[in-house]
Design a protein around this nucleic acid. Structure first.
Lengths: 92, 92
DNA sequence: ACAAAAACTACGCCATTGACTTACTTATTT
DNA sequence: AAATAAGTAAGTCAATGGCGTAGTTTTTGT
């Protein structure tokens, strides 16, 4: 595979860079402040086991999140946001 | 916004579900076993500060990863994989 | 070319999380 | 109705994430 497809993606990455450099306002945030893992999972109609596998965490950790015993860390919050808004990227 | 777009996405989520249930083999993995944060960041041509912001981690954590002092956890590995293969989802 | 600023390396320390375990309850399926 | 799957709840501990400090390298501006 050539790099052309990857280079195409760099256009939107450039946008991401601008957003992060605060030169541009994001149309809508891709990060959720306090993501509700339970409701996101419910929308995707997955079991705890399935959703945990998707996020590459143990079921127990997902349960800790859903029961508000622990709260997901930074990267996990971003990942939950992606699961909520762009679940298709997990498929391939 | 209606739910139609979201429902469209559910098709691919269904595929993700099948993959996770081991009923289907993924064409190619979306998760990297040992993601090299440094090289992924290099391809995206971002500074450590920018990339850390994208992943919602502190710069120090990214540095720990790049210098092999710590290794990213489950969800962070998935997120790095997405950054490598689908960086456009971070833009909006 | 040179100084200033930005980017990066390196590491010590501590609070919080993630993973594992056990026990129990609720829902689903056959 | 019994068996199986799914989910609630909570205790323990190692590893990570975040923060601080100090020094080095690279980039930028004049």
């Amino acid at each position: 595979m050539e790099d052309t497809m990857f280079n195409d993606l760099l256009a939107s990455v450039g946008e991401a860079k601008e957003i992060l450099q605060h030169k541009k306002q994001p149309s809508r945030s891709f990060m959720i402040d306090e993501p509700d893992a339970k409701s996101i999972r419910a929308r995707l109609k997955m079991t705890q086991d399935e959703f945990a596998g998707l996020l590459n965490i143990s079921v127990n950790t997902l349960r800790n999140w859903e029961q508000s015993r622990r709260k997901p860390e930074g990267p996990a919050r971003v990942l939950l946001g992606i699961a909520a808004t762009h679940p298709e990227v997990f498929a391939h």
